[in-house]
């Protein structure tokens, strides 16, 4: 059910974009909607991040995954258990760039019906790395369509990405790895019974969007042979804030662009906000120097405590009888 709703929504988005292109609504689908989507993305994400950042961190609660900094002769694990801000930054870099935590992933198994064993399980890590890194390279490659002249690093990246020189135009490595990554993540949601059980429509939807964007892109480059010059003309006009919609752009492009627009606008309101949230996770971005540097809770308030005086008042006779020192002597009868 969740899958069908998500698939239907993604197909609907693509079809709407195609239809818009075919019906000559180039202005709407090529200018207005992408512009609005970008605004919603930037504005929405800014609001979201501000919402997180303005929420206090009352306690310093890093999850420590290595030896602490304590005695001089014991070697601390600075990246898995950072003691300083710089070290915490290193930990964050590992997490954001290498998905460090997923690299730990294991799969539990019951051996001979009585013993638990844990196998290293790197499928999720690999699928996620492929998808995210390929997507980044693909986005950078797309700068070719939005800049004139094309910056050197874009051309360089493009050349590197196409080094296999298979096909004409050359197939980019990241095209393949991106589609492989997305397909793996989707397939995992279908086949892993626990993951399928917890998956919401909102978990399938962005994957279908990404798959649609990727497939329509592949079609445009390798099969449809769309008028790339016209597309670049449109994109350049957008980035010069003087939009002009040339004739002859394939409807598939509008389907592609509408999928991307919807994804962009969807980000701040959905789980994809994790792209910003990961930087703000208090179990990862704080140094474990709790006993060395005091952390202040901005909303700390006084609480009712049972004072020593109240304690002694209640138990003084027993304390005296047990030979314990007291602050106030027992009253003589």
């Amino acid at each position: 059910m969740n899958v069908l709703v998500a698939l239907g929504a993604a197909v609907g988005v693509f079809a709407a974009g195609m239809a818009g292109g075919a019906l000559g609504l180039g202005w709407l689908f090529g200018v207005v909607i992408p512009g609005l989507a970008l605004l919603v993305f930037l504005g929405g994400l800014a609001v979201k991040v501000w919402d997180w950042v303005s929420t206090p961190v009352p306690f310093r609660i890093p999850t420590t995954c290595g030896q602490q900094t304590s005695l001089d002769w014991i070697k601390p694990n600075k990246l898995e258990n950072p003691h300083t801000g710089i070290q915490a930054l290193g930990r964050m870099a590992l997490e954001v760039l290498c998905f460090r935590s997923l690299l730990r992933n294991t799969k539990a198994e019951m051996v001979q019906g009585r013993r638990l064993a844990y196998r290293t399980s790197l499928g999720l890590w690999l699928g996620a790395m492929l998808m995210h890194w390929s997507l980044l390279v693909i986005l950078i490659r797309h700068l070719r369509l939005m800049t004139n002249p094309v910056p050197a690093f874009v051309s360089f990246l493009e050349a590197a990405d196409g080094f296999l020189e298979i096909g004409l135009p050359a197939v980019f490595v990241t095209t393949v790895t991106f589609l492989a990554g997305v397909t793996y993540l989707l397939a995992r949601r279908f086949t892993n019974p626990q993951v399928r059980y917890i998956s919401l429509a909102g978990d399938y939807f962005p994957l279908f969007l990404l798959l649609g964007i990727g497939l329509s892109g592949v079609w445009m480059r390798h099969f449809g042979k769309v008028d790339i010059a016209a597309i670049k003309e449109l994109m350049l006009s957008l980035f010069h804030f003087s939009p002009a919609v040339p004739e002859g752009i394939s409807p598939v492009f509008y389907g592609h662009l509408f999928l991307a627009s919807v994804l962009l606008a969807y980000i701040p309101f959905s789980k994809i906000a994790h792209m910003a949230g990961i930087f703000l996770s208090p179990t990862r971005n704080l140094a474990n120097n709790n006993r060395a540097v005091r952390h202040v809770n901005p909303w700390d308030y006084p609480v009712k405590v049972h004072t020593y005086e109240e304690y002694e008042e209640e138990l003084r006779d027993k304390m005296v009888a047990a030979g314990l020192p007291v602050e106030k002597p027992l009253e003589k009868e």
Partner: peptide, 11 residues
């Protein structure tokens, strides 16, 4: 807000 339900935590 950020859970993507990847299921890495499950087992």
């Amino acid at each position: 807000d950020t859970c993507v339900r990847c299921g890495a935590c499950a087992d």
